[in-house]
Amino acid sequence: MASPDKVDPIHQFAINKIVDLHIGGLDVSFTNSSLYMVVTVVLTGAFLYLATSSRAVVPSRMQSVAEMSYEFIANMLRDAAGEQGMKFFPLVFSLFMFVLVANLIGMFPYFFTVTSHIIVTFALAMLVILTVIFYGLYKHGLHFFNLFVPSGVPGILLPLVVAIEVISFLSRPISLSVRLFANMLAGHITLKVFSGFVVSLSALGVGGIVGSVLPLGMAVALTGLEFLVSFLQAYVFAVLTCMYLNDAIHPGH
């Protein structure tokens, strides 16, 4: 690479402190990541508020989008967790909108992608899993642990199977967060690398400029793919949340 400061695919994920804050020895500085989270929340809230402020029987375009997103999540949740799952609708809808809007904001050049940091996605995943565990225990008590005991397993194998099931359950927040984080991270790095090729190649003169058409086309295609991935990952996150909530609502069938 010609000059590492020019084409540095990792640079876009750097965390910068905007307001330095320390409370009780904890670093709670307001960073660019926090800023973009606030922007995400404000944007989502403002959009939904504006879209639903003038409710009409024949919806406007914005209202239509808001209603579509509502219907989308409502159907998803009802399919996965049944009618009882609808009490978790606010959680699932907020998660979906947050992830989706954060992903889409990250698609703007020079913007920060909140979901490309594993700690953010992990916090979201832990929120889901803790909800599942606490609601499951609250609702079903110790019966909730039937989740880990598959039916029809011979008694001698039971400890082994239960241990594997427990590990499998514990790995859920990890895989949930790693999937979202890795997709966003990999996508943005790839995009940056291909865009970097365009810059490096076009610095080589006429032949380079002609050659740089290839990575440019690739970058354009990847941008489209990244938009798809943004939606898809938000969707996958929401679907898996619904599935996990279903386990909390109906453990051991």
């Binding site: 590990i167 790995s171 990890i174 895989s175 997709n183 990999a186 991935v229 898809l232 996958v236």
Partner: peptide
Amino acid sequence: GQAMKLSSEFIAGVGVG
């Protein structure tokens, strides 16, 4: 996407273990 999904599932299992 499929590869990402399956590998993250597997790695998560091994990692948690």
